[in-house]
Design a protein around this nucleic acid. Structure first.
Lengths: 334, 334
DNA sequence: CTGTTAGCGCATTCAT
DNA sequence: ATGAATGCGCTAACAG
């Protein structure tokens, strides 16, 4: 059923019906009421495709994220959804599983889909061909979580955050600290955090310490168990995200170590669940929902202004350290 | 840039360009190559709005879920995304936060958005006005997680599952078993599980046992702490989902009870994370991704056949009990 | 195998 | 304040 049917039924022209929806002030109050009555009675809904075809805008924001199985991104998407709804935009989220091919495909699909703008978290802004394509299309976009001087980004300073974590652990007496990182190639966040770790260790004359890369969640626990059974074992693990930290806690228990008495473990991301675990996760918290909200706001602003977003619009949000229960001073017996 | 520009550039008609994309066999191989060359060179992408306006199909499936902050639904959405992609469909997910008004709005938006079909998890299929609207629109849809004889559903038998859980606990010697439920009004799943609990208790002559409703996650830990400090306290908690179970474990620790030595705790849903917790969550596992996949397959089938989905297409998938570490026989001292 | 044409549903001139 | 006419980009007859 189309606007035409409504017009016929209400005894007005198509234009009038259209105006009722788009420029309600421009139509006589009585007529407007009659039309609205009719549309309700008929259950009429304006066709989104036709509308965007005609106006060249869709009031839809595309969202590209690695995965929703990591609560970080689910929380961020939640923030995006809220802010978008508040601004009168719908969202069209696509996940990429950290795969470049899917990143590209997602951007392609979104470009063809008439979205008005894009929020995305890519693996690596410096090398992303998806981003290049986006810029070529001249569509407003903003990166979330990524940091790069040539793109508009909403993020936190992960490098500094991890440096601080190391300092905190050192202050607790830890010396043998190991970084457990996800696949370093998979994201600039992992690299950022690794840099922070190295810098933090170096700052305390501990630069010799190694790190462990656990590319797949499935085998993470096992690999960490291996690490913990070496001699001497680390007294603290700095995990590059919360999901890894949870696995590290698991691994510690499996090899008979108590957290935090025998080993300290920190995470990164601040997923909500971490707060209800036992031991409560000590972790760097990012404002995940706010990152999404901020991204949407920047985008909507740019759309309203009709201007593309520049790197100078980038925002660095504050992180914090949640003092949980998974860290403790190194025990005297060490 | 439109199909027209490509046609001009390639020296063919619009129809030919269109056919290259839609009926490639129907066009001369040489011409096809030339056109493809041109489209690539120009960076042309077919406009999705125009296409769906013209064809009255979008190859998009709408998805309505309560929230993605609960990993159950994130896992399900992941399954949906995979299956949809495999079938050549895109997805358009919307969350409702368990609110009826948002459910309705979501369906409305999706109906206007030219989706070809819908997957949804509603609060209550029996009373959902969103569902009624959907049926009126004659758009194929399938419910996930919900169970109702008058709708096509993909779900597990939550009632039976909880009965089995109760039987399991009773076999371990537990008598004082309490159900910790989310907001019962918020979903038919919660009600289903509660029925299973009552039935299971009754089957063992324990019908007098009460349950605790914890409507908000924020206060759940506190409320459960209160429950655990009563005298006599329950020796086992049956939680109506995994997120509640995790909070229950937290609560137990806060009041000084060991899990499972002092109290047994079970969950429901089988979120992936539960397997890496310490203690590993003992819980009813649902095949969350498979539920989504199955829903998509049913929907795609129906779309291919051009027929709406009937309640008789409903599928009940198997659940299982994951024997974790959060349950133990009631201790002798009890 | 390819081109011409019409129209999907809507918003927007321009006219009245 | 309202109506008639046009075209957004595309696909599907139909014609050749």
């Amino acid at each position: 059923m189309s606007i035409k049917d409504v017009a016929l039924q209400a005894g007005v022209s198509m234009s009038t019906v259209s105006r009722v929806f788009n420029l309600p002030d421009k139509v006589n109050a009585a007529t407007r009421e009659r039309v609205l009555q009719t549309t309700r009675a008929m259950g009429y809904l304006p066709n989104a495709s036709a509308r965007s075809l005609r106006t060249q805008r869709s009031r839809v924001l595309g969202v590209v994220l690695p995965t929703l199985l990591n609560p970080v991104f689910a929380e961020c998407l939640d923030g995006i959804a809220q802010a978008a709804r508040a601004a009168g935009y719908a969202i069209l989220p696509i996940t990429t599983d950290y795969e470049l091919a899917q990143e590209e495909q997602a951007v392609q699909q979104l470009l063809a889909g008439n979205v008005d703008g894009l929020l995305l978290a890519v693996s690596n802004p410096a090398t992303s061909s998806a981003l290049a394509r986006l810029q070529a299309a001249n569509l407003p976009y903003v990166l979330v979580y990524n940091r790069h001087p040539e793109h508009p980004c909403v993020s936190v300073d992960g490098e500094q955050a991890v440096r601080d974590v190391v300092a905190r652990l050192v202050a607790m007496g830890h010396r043998r600290i190991t970084l457990i990182s996800g696949q370093l190639a998979a994201s600039d966040r992992a690299q950022q955090r690794q840099r922070g770790f190295c810098a933090g260790m170096a700052a305390h004359g501990l630069e010799g310490s190694p790190w462990l890369e656990v590319p797949f969640v499935e085998t993470a626990v096992q690999e960490i168990c291996g690490l913990l059974q070496r001699n001497p074992r680390p007294t603290a693990l700095v995990c590059s995200n919360d999901l890894i930290a949870i696995r590290a806690i698991r691994a510690a228990h499996l090899v008979g170590l108590r957290v935090p008495q025998d080993i300290s473990i920190t995470g990164f991301d601040g997923i909500a669940l971490g707060e209800d675990l036992t031991p409560m996760l000590s972790t760097v918290t990012q404002p995940n929902a706010a990152i999404g909200q901020c991204g949407v706001e920047l985008l909507v602003q740019a759309l309203a202004a009709g201007l593309p977003l520049t790197p100078s619009a980038s925002v660095s949000l504050d992180h914090a350290f949640r003092v949980g229960e998974s860290c403790a001073p190194v025990s005297l017996s060490e």
